[in-house]
Design a protein around this nucleic acid. Structure first.
Lengths: 341, 341
DNA sequence: ATGTATTCTTTACGCGCGTAAAAATTTTGT
DNA sequence: ACAAAATTTTTACGCGCGTAAAGAATACAT
């Protein structure tokens, strides 16, 4: 200790006047030591700016404070935003979150899970790719690590599922559209990357039956996660083939809707709620950019706050040992009425 | 070793028939052992699926394989995309990248740097917040850790700076706009979050002087990183005040342009290159969503590939001990001509 | 076959923590 | 003041690695 630099907990223990095991106990949980002890330690932290070696800590703890957050695609602002919410909740709860993206690639998802496993996480908040996910790897991971699945459900993996209520989403916005104009056609991808799409289609069919209208589904070609481009190309084709039987189009998700709006623009089709508009377009998701389309997109938005709150709290409860049977929680969305429909 | 599960390197060493220090050497750098030895180790890895304890490894290595990637805002797809590029390059080079976002918050940026430091990173690829960054914390960090600054430059911190050539961006697109129609006004934020904006303004002024036109800068109010909303509100105000002296508007960045396009839509102002359009709008950045605006935005795009390649390679060279004087590299962008201008 | 260079093994210690259990000290309640 | 409860200290060992240095084994060149 020749230059005042604290190199390890032993040295820190000496300058703080508190025994090393107690210092260790403090860094694990400050509330586990009495206040007078805590004050001494915190004064020494202030003076010496000591921080335990995180590798040694993580190696030797039965349970680390590490939490993984895995999303299928970070360039989708929906996932970036919900990840940001989850991250903040983890930090607030005393965890150390690490963010991973599968970049739309199943092999990458497996690799992310392997890397995560080596971090001995207390838990993981995982939005899987969905249909493309390696089921076996995912199941094994969920068996080994406290894992909360969010966004799209894959069987009954993990401790619980938290996501948006796709049925309510689609029913609610279909209802809105039927009440305000012609009943909507449903615009979707034929082979969607994300299984939420199937639920939304089913819900659309059910809703239309309930409201007494004939459903029409337009399923477009396209693979992967580039939804805007798929929506644009599919929109062009659907318009050329005159596939839409009504003037109202409900899209499976906002990004597909954004692509469709581009196709409308390119074909000179006026979109909006007014009497001068040729068609109305609606989306689902409340994508952060849907406010800035032309026209601003009517959509139904995830409750980012409620989803992230519920997901994080469920995971933390499980980490704390509160064992519950597997449960699926679906949170209703909120209609955002704008100018496109 | 009662159930075939390998618990540590010692056990793995026994089953592979290779000494523990040699196994350790292999995991550090597979090329550092001879081929026959490597084959034996890899066969045992295949059979036992062993992976060294990452905490013990990182604790004891003089230089870890950890690389941090820090961006100011992950919900901006520009940063999400360039981060994805950088991440892949790190993985390909044998590093272990960890992604961090400052979420537009200077205090968070400092916290990210502190967390990063505790990971003993081999190096860090850092896109700072810019003007809002805690200069002292940043400088100290760069002194302690091999840090490559990208996107926006902050003094001569770190080993080098790699970013886009804002001068070329703005000059090039100004030139294009002047050749194809009326000379552009420059639409910017009065107090931009990101210092690239200042360079772009200066370049615009210089370009206009060079081309022999009177420059006009419209600086709008707004703080933070919600560029679309700032652009939309500022657009409304500028149109109401008739601030644009020409029919052409060059925006400081794509997201501001997206907001301005929304204001145009809301005010019924037709945008485009055609003779029926009232104004032309152009952006800068090649934002992934700029293809899906109405009309698709003419912009100048970062060379994501070249920037990430150069940044990563510079950092890896520095990690490998190739000491060079501080250097700034600016990579030219490519004009993307679409329908907005 | 011999000598040299390269690689691996053996031996030993280090890293900075977590934590168990027994003993000691401090705090709290009567 | 005393007893009980709570907290801290002391003592000791463990975790799974990295790596240095000396000696042994292997590969390559002549």
């Amino acid at each position: 200790m020749s230059d005042g630099k604290i190199r390890n907990m032993e040295e820190f223990s000496a300058v703080s006047g508190i025994s090393r095991p107690t210092v260790s106990k403090y860094f694990h949980d400050p509330e586990s030591v009495r206040q007078s002890t805590r004050k001494k330690i915190e004064a020494a932290i202030e003076e010496y700016d000591y921080r335990p070696n995180i590798f040694a800590m993580n190696q030797n703890r039965k349970l680390t404070k590490n939490v993984g957050i895995v999303v299928p695609l970070l360039t989708d602002p929906y996932f970036a935003e919900i990840a940001r919410n989850l991250e903040q909740r983890c930090i607030d709860a005393g965890y150390r979150p690490t963010l991973f993206s599968a970049h739309g690639d199943p092999a990458m998802e497996v690799e992310v899970l392997d890397n995560l496993r080596s971090l001995k996480p207390a838990g993981v908040l995982l939005a899987p790719l969905g249909r493309a996910s390696d089921r076996r790897a995912l199941e094994k991971f969920c068996d080994d690590v406290h894992t909360l699945i969010f966004d799209s459900s894959v069987e009954q993996f993990g401790i619980a599922f938290v996501g948006s209520d796709n049925h309510q989403f689609t029913t609610h916005i279909s209802d809105y559209l039927c009440r305000t104009g012609e009943p909507p056609c449903f615009f979707e991808m034929k082979t969607p990357a994300n299984p939420n799409a199937h639920r939304r289609r089913q819900s659309y069919l059910r809703a239309m039956e309930e409201f007494g209208f004939d459903p029409q589904v337009i399923s477009i070609e396209g693979e992967g996660w580039a939804f805007e481009e798929i929506g644009r190309l599919g929109g062009h084709e659907a318009f050329s083939n005159k596939q839409f039987s009504t003037n109202t189009i409900l899209c499976s998700n906002d990004r597909l809707a954004i692509g469709l709006l581009t196709a409308c623009y390119e074909q000179g089709i006026k979109v909006g709620r007014g009497s001068d508009a040729a068609i109305r377009v609606a989306g689902q998701d409340g994508h952060p950019h849907s406010r800035y389309t032309c026209p601003p997109l009517t959509t139904i938005s995830h409750d980012y706050d409620a989803v992230s709150k519920h997901a994080a709290e469920s995971l933390f409860a499980a980490i704390d040992g509160h064992v519950e049977p597997w449960k699926s929680t679906r949170i209703e969305g909120k209609l955002i009425m704008r100018d496109s429909a």
